[in-house]
Design a protein around this nucleic acid. Structure first.
Length: 224
DNA sequence: ACCCAGGGTCATA
DNA sequence: TATGACCATGGG
């Protein structure tokens, strides 16, 4: 199938990415919120602030005043909103017994609970599920929509869940990944490669009207 | 100076 | 269900 072909080409072009950049599951969770519509280079600055202040920890984040937390988050943008979202997520996380308890939950239950937290949407939840909890959930982001729409494989306006199911079904049937472990490994590497490739492609100028959706896009030669 | 980034919520129709 | 306003910094 095409979806695996694209993966193989990306892997050959860029090699393994060893995602997610973050040393602990909790750091992955924080990073997933901070990177909402934000360049990762800015997220790194905010994470460095939290580490330097020794508050990269759910209890300590809750203990901070919203203003003080927002101050450390300044470089990642949307700092007031993200301070509130981090707070919401940490409160939920602690109330459920943190990682040691949550890791025992079934994926479906965990996903629904994450999505119920104000400030956690589909992509943030799935980043957390895949990269912090190692669950077989395929992450759909803006790069995924652009790249695969331009390849003619998906409709970039399709709802998130529709695309996620398409990727998961396609990559699980047949060759892709039969065992759960292989699914997690494949989804992990695939999303990382899509992001790396997306950064590369979408930096090109001039951009086509809807970036990577037109046959005339100067980056088209990168594909097939 | 302008454009955008590894989104999500809320109000409105 | 589907748009649109809003959030905000730093790099190209």
């Amino acid at each position: 199938m095409r979806f695996l072909t694209v993966y193989q080409r990306l892997f050959r072009a860029y090699g393994p990415q060893y995602w997610w950049p973050g040393e602990t599951p909790f750091e992955v969770i924080v990073g997933a919120v901070l990177t909402q519509n934000t360049a990762w280079s800015n997220v790194e600055k905010a994470l460095a602030n939290l580490k330097a202040a020794e508050v990269l920890d759910a209890e300590r984040i809750i203990a901070l005043s919203p203003q003080r937390l927002a101050h450390w988050l300044t470089p990642s943008g949307y700092f007031n909103i993200k301070a509130q979202r981090l707070r919401n997520l940490c409160a939920w996380y602690l109330s459920q017994g943190a990682f040691q308890q949550l890791r025992r939950w079934h994926t479906k239950r965990l996903r629904k609970a994450l999505l119920s937290v104000n400030g956690v949407g589909f992509e943030t939840a799935d980043d957390i599920l895949l990269y912090a909890f190692k669950r077989p959930v395929f992450v759909i982001d803006a790069y995924t929509r652009r790249i695969f729409a331009r390849l003619g494989l998906v409709d970039h306006t399709a709802p998130y869940e529709h695309l996620r199911q398409l990727f998961q079904e396609t990559l699980t049937e047949g060759q892709g990944a039969t065992s759960r472990q292989r699914q997690v490994a494949l989804y992990n590497e695939y999303h990382a490669l899509i992001v790396i490739h997306g950064k590369e492609i979408c930096r090109q100028r001039p951009r086509c009207a809807q970036c990577c959706l037109r046959a005339r896009c100067p980056a088209r030669s990168e594909y097939f």
